[in-house]
Design a protein around this nucleic acid. Structure first.
Length: 302
DNA sequence: TCCCAGGTCCTAC
DNA sequence: GTAGGACCTGGG
């Protein structure tokens, strides 16, 4: 099964290495072809094609549509850029990372991935998630090799502490099992959040239940909302975005952004709200281009 | 040995 | 409300 992506405007390197998804790997040094697991499919992606290798046990013609949805190919990048403000730094970022597309991932996988991201760097996050898939995922056998699916909520809800810790999740284990149990019990229905407004959905994600912690704060919630729950107006703020804001958008704020070492929930709300109103309904695209730009600038200036 | 990593929680003012 | 510290773990 194969999709023609030549007219769909995607740069695989920019799309898969920008930190929105963690299960993609380049096949060569140039990064012209990438392999990843989506649901029970293994995908091979270039600028021109998306090849779909299904699990042998599953034959389904809806797959094409689901893959189109995963890549959010219905979103026209040029139209997105037209709607964004034309400040110089953002324009440079958009030019430099041409073809970076926001994905529309599975909400459960996305939320768990960003719970794993807490206080970790990207290589570590990838390793943890790979460990979880190997330990708790199901086998996927395709013509291009054997892979593992992402763990189900049930598998993590029923997991033993020692098994989770063997995946190197560390203190995040309690977050993972907690959230998995809420999903299994039906207390939290992630797909339902798609139909709510950004504010409503975020309120549910960051809420606390019976005094116990979710592990989901502002940043993790915004990532799940942006990358998997169709809320393109979300604007996650992490340490890199804070650096970016200090360098290029500080003048917008009455509070002294440069003096902030970290973000209190209140300040997160102030900054996020202002930038969302500045960047508009596609704030998340701006965020992701700026994130990439800020990171690479930092690397080159070292 | 210390510091940092796509943060969040807990505790004390 | 908020500043300061702890937190699994691995790498520089």
């Amino acid at each position: 099964l194969e999709l023609d992506a030549s007219q769909l405007h995607i740069n695989p390197s920019h799309t898969f290495s920008c930190g929105q998804a963690f299960r993609w790997h380049p096949l060569d040094q140039k990064g012209s072809k990438w392999i990843g697991v989506v649901g029970r499919n293994v995908l091979a992606v270039t600028r021109d094609t998306v090849k779909i290798y299904s699990d042998n046990s599953e034959k389904n013609n809806d797959e094409k549509e689901r893959i189109m949805d995963y890549f959010a190919f219905d979103e026209d990048l040029h139209r997105v850029f037209q709607d964004l403000p034309k400040d110089p730094y953002l324009l440079t970022a958009i030019q430099e990372f041409e073809g970076l597309r926001l994905l529309s991932q599975d909400p459960w996988e996305c939320l768990v991935s960003f719970l794993c991201s807490i206080n970790k760097n990207i290589p570590s996050i990838q390793r943890i998630i790979e460990n979880l898939c190997n330990r708790f995922g199901e086998r996927i056998e395709t013509d291009v090799g054997k892979y593992r699916s992402f763990p189900s909520p049930q598998s993590l809800a029923n997991s033993k502490e020692s098994d989770l810790l063997s995946c190197k999740v560390g203190f995040r284990s309690k977050y993972l099992r907690f959230i998995a149990k809420k999903i299994v019990s039906g207390e939290l229905d992630l797909d339902k959040l798609k139909d709510l407004s950004y504010e409503q959905a975020k309120g549910i994600l960051v809420s606390k239940i019976s005094g116990k912690t979710f592990g989901v704060g502002n940043k993790v919630a915004d990532c799940a909302l942006l990358f998997s729950l169709k809320k393109r107006e979300a604007f996650p703020i992490d340490v890199w975005m804070l650096r970016c804001i200090r360098s290029h958008y500080a003048k917008r704020f009455e509070i002294n952004v440069s003096a902030l070492k970290s973000l209190s929930p209140k300040n997160y709300e102030i900054i996020s709200k202002d930038l969302r109103s500045y960047f508009g309904k596609h704030s998340g695209y701006a965020q992701q281009y700026l994130y990439m730009k800020t990171r690479t600038d930092a690397i080159y200036s070292r």
